[in-house]
């Protein structure tokens, strides 16, 4: 069972292998992030910074 990744935008647990296959990944500062769906990925790509703020609470 692969290690699950956390979607930085909505906080959902994502299977990185499946996300990779669907192209739902994005790189930032050398790290790869995995997303539950297109929306979260596009949000992240548009502007990743807010999601790294210490008080950002990912919500569904």
């Amino acid at each position: 069972m692969t290690q699950m990744a956390t979607d930085p935008v909505c906080g959902m647990q994502v299977d990185p292998v499946q996300a990779e296959a669907k192209g739902l990944t994005a790189e930032h500062n050398g790290e790869t992030y995995y997303f539950c769906g297109k929306g979260c990925m596009l949000d992240f790509k548009d502007d990743p910074e807010p999601y790294f703020a210490p008080d950002y609470k990912p919500s569904m």
């Binding site: 909505c10 959902m12 539950c36 769906g37 297109k38 929306g39 979260c40």
Partner: peptide, 12 residues
């Protein structure tokens, strides 16, 4: 098509 979670909803 393609919505997965509430973030998608917000975005749209």
């Amino acid at each position: 098509e393609g919505m997965t979670c509430a973030s998608c909803v917000n975005r749209i």
